[in-house]
Design a protein around this nucleic acid. Structure first.
Length: 468
RNA sequence: GCCCCCAUCGUCUAGCGGCCUAGGACACCACCCUCUCAAGGUGGCGGCACGGGUUCGAAUCCCGUUGGGGGUGCCA
């Protein structure tokens, strides 16, 4: 039997980091065993589901590079209502489910009055109500016995049936809930392994009970993934944390950076090599190596992994990936010179952690005039008594020096010596005059690319009027 | 409240009874390299939650405690 896994998002929001990690692990597992990775849309809740979000989820999975094997034919639970409804009828007919017209508040009151813990009390089990617009359908869980799950990452987990309340499988409007649709579809799609977040562990015995009641056959193997937690060791939340994968894309993270980092949350390669090509991660991946404890999301490490991926790109690739960010840069399209960019690319790569930082690293090369950073100007020019003489000397010297990074480097060194300072001090005012900042890529390479005329023009402009 | 899960440096992890005076990575600190800033190199800081067992031997196995988290919906 071929291994078959699924990722079953609910289109109620943009793709969440936790969901992306779940999708990734399913995908990694499927690819590592030459199995199938399928997608199913769990939109049984008409109130919350936003159909337009489905394409967004697909787009994000595409961006991450998680290809699925039923593309274009992803089951949508909202379109399978009849199938589910038939299952509800069967359960009803078999006496495995019953109608219930209890209001939540009534249940709570009864529990409070009787001193019982919260949860449905089975009030309607034997009332023999008929199903109608004012009733839900509940599944009658066994009163005794237990449901055991042999979870790949957690070992055997046992649930006593007495603690399993009679849960709702069909709403009063006739639609079915996730538990039922999920159990039916996993059986029907021939899913062999179910990998999902640990927050679903408690619902697993219910799914198993349903599957059994519906003669769904051998249950899948379960693997409940550790939750990804945020700052306070709590489940990542939309309020506190930046959880939308799209946000990371827009912030300049590489998909392979996200994939690599996410793969490290709850799993680690045996050989300890953390940052590596996705193909290798697939090779190394194994279900048994997933660890059960919650994993904290660390933006700093994500950034580091991303930076490593960025450095691994060749210049052409960097340019291509940077395109969206360069398009939003402050210079005109005509001012951009791809050859200049490509020449500077290696220096840019070792200095940025995200694509979003790329434009700022090269803007002075394409802008008619550099963006002058106030603090930098003050520090290196205004409040630097050596700035004027140094700049003046540079204007003089750069007029005739051979225009190569090497010669410019040597010339600036000599300029510094003549004024009693080392190269570090000597290049500072020149750097600010030409690039607008005290920090940036290597100066002399940049000057070479910029050309003699532009460089000298910028040096002149940096000189105070009186001195100029 | 009840049910379930988890527990190695701040964080991600290696470790699956002796190779552990616990290894790596991120972050942090120092030094080196150096035209700034990075990158890179070297070194440093820092951890098996606690208490009982089991065993010749426990980070590793068992029990308990404590702590954390998740679930407890006509959400998924």
């Amino acid at each position: 039997m071929t291994t078959r896994v699924r990722f079953a998002p609910s289109p109620t929001g943009s793709l969440h980091l936790g969901s992306a990690r779940t999708a990734l692990f399913n995908w990694l597992f499927a690819r590592s065993v030459s199995g199938e990775f399928l997608i199913r849309i769990e939109d049984t809740d008409a109130e919350r589901s936003r159909p337009e979000l489905i394409d967004q989820v697909f787009a994000t999975l595409d961006w991450l590079g998680l290809d699925w094997d039923n593309r274009g034919d992803e089951p949508r639970q909202s379109q399978r209502a009849e199938l589910y409804r038939a299952a509800v009828e069967r359960l009803l007919a078999a006496g495995a489910a019953y109608a219930c017209d209890c209001e939540r508040s009534a249940v709570d009151e009864r529990n409070a009055a009787a001193g019982r813990p919260p949860g449905y009390d089975g009030h309607c089990r034997d009332r023999d109500l008929s199903v109608g617009p004012d009733t839900v359908v509940r599944f009658a869980t066994p009163d005794t016995g237990s449901v055991d799950i042999d979870d790949v990452v957690r070992g055997r987990v046992s649930f006593d049936c007495v603690n399993l309340e009679d849960f709702v499988i069909a709403r009063s409007d006739g639609s079915v809930t996730f538990l039922l649709a999920n159990a039916i579809d996993d059986a029907e799609m021939g899913i062999t392994h179910v990998m999902r977040g640990e927050d679903l562990l408690n619902s697993t015995p219910k799914a198993l009970l349903l599957r059994r009641a519906l003669d769904g056959g051998e249950p899948p193997i379960f693997a409940h993934l550790p939750l990804i937690v945020g700052e306070g060791r709590k489940k990542l939340s939309k309020r506190r944390d930046d959880v939308a994968v799209e946000n990371y894309r827009d912030a300049g993270y590489l998909p392979e950076g996200m994939v690599n980092y996410l793969a490290l949350l709850g799993w680690g390669p045996k050989d300890g090599v953390e940052v590596r090509p996705t193909a290798e991660i697939i090779e190394q991946f194994s279900l048994e190596a997933i660890n059960p404890s919650p994993a904290g999301f660390d933006p700093k490490k994500l950034a580091h992994v991303n930076a490593e991926k960025l450095r691994a790109l060749d210049p052409e690739e960097l340019l291509a990936r940077s395109e969206p960010f360069l398009a939003a840069a402050p210079w005109g399209a005509d001012d951009f010179d791809r050859d200049v960019f490509l020449a500077m690319a290696p220096e840019v790569q070792s200095r940025v952690k995200t694509l979003a930082e790329v434009p700022d690293m090269v803007d002075f090369l394409f802008l008619p005039q550099p963006l002058m950073d106030e603090g930098s100007v003050a520090k290196a020019i205004t409040n630097n008594e050596l700035a004027v003489p140094l700049l003046g000397a540079a204007i003089e010297r750069f007029g005739s020096v051979e225009w190569t990074a090497e010669a410019l480097h040597a010339a600036t060194l000599e300029l510094g010596e003549a004024h009693g300072v080392k190269l570090g001090k000597a290049q500072a005012p020149i750097r600010v005059a030409v690039t607008g900042r005290t920090v940036g890529p290597p100066l002399f390479e940049a000057l070479e690319l910029l050309g003699r005329a532009t460089t000298i023009d910028r040096l002149r402009r940096a000189l105070p009027p009186a001195a100029g």
